[in-house]
Amino acid sequence: MGIDPGASSVKVVVMDYGGGEGEILFRHVERIRRRDPAKVVQECYQRALEACGLGEDQIDYLASTGDGDLVPFRRGHFYGMTTHARGAKYFSSEVKSVLDVGALHARAMRVDERSRVLQYQMTGQCASGSGQFLENIARYLGVGLEEVGPLSLRAKKPEVVSTICAVLAETDVINMVSRGIATEDILKGIHLSIANRLAKLLRYIKADSPLVVTGGLAKDAGLMQAIREKMAEEGQQIQILTHPDSILAGAIGAALWAGFRHEQLVPFQLNAPNLGEVPHGAGA
């Protein structure tokens, strides 16, 4: 099982490892919506067990990623980059680069054929390359999150916004609304602004094709189009892929690494003082 508590939602998958192929038995995304994240994690965990008809002791290995502190019953934890890289490989076995766009951060990674991260770059403290920023904008504009992508795709004359700061960009948007700019054009401008930041990350790591986009924003068709336009503008011919389960990439990666570690650990008893003797490495 992989559990990925993020800034705005908790993602859970239960998988049959199947020697690394991996089959998803259960998937769930639960928005936190001002609730106690630890309780949301616990509810998701119980829901996963019930849906699969499994008891706690029937989960071979439960791995967390993201905010692992919220999953005290985990067996192991994998860092977000490691799991998103693995999740991206699950979506596309040819993947060379990964772009994870979550609620608060975005990061670009170059990976090898085993989904091992070779090089990476992250956004800093600023949230202007992230889902939370887009969510705030959607709220100002009075549109649902699911409408953002389709509206942006219909834009005719995108309105340029600040590409530096989420706070300034939000102020820009308020001004645009008062100037009567069409919602589609505002959203496309926002998408281009985010895409500009993401393209910088991809440039830093010298991203190769194909690129798999993971995280909550991967399903935003407007943003994907904006990224393609930015990359084309920079003369980069890069295939950009998404997947309907992109938001679950971290949880899927965690579950697959969990399966990998479980196979390594099978000969060793839990709570025996010999875990340190397990040979590490040789991943997937």
């Binding site: 192991g76 994998f78 860092y79 980059m81 490691t82 990674m109 085993r114 091992r116 991260v117 070779l118 090089q119 990476y120 770059q121 992250m122 830093y204 790591i205 690494w257 990998f260 570690r261 040979p279 590490h280 490495g281 040789a282 991943g283 997937a284």
Partner: peptide, 17 residues
């Protein structure tokens, strides 16, 4: 990432550009 790279690859961590 250091921990993951040892656990999964037994090798050095990735490089942050």
């Amino acid at each position: 990432t250091f921990s993951d790279s040892i656990k999964l690859w037994g090798a050095p961590s990735p490089v942050r550009t």
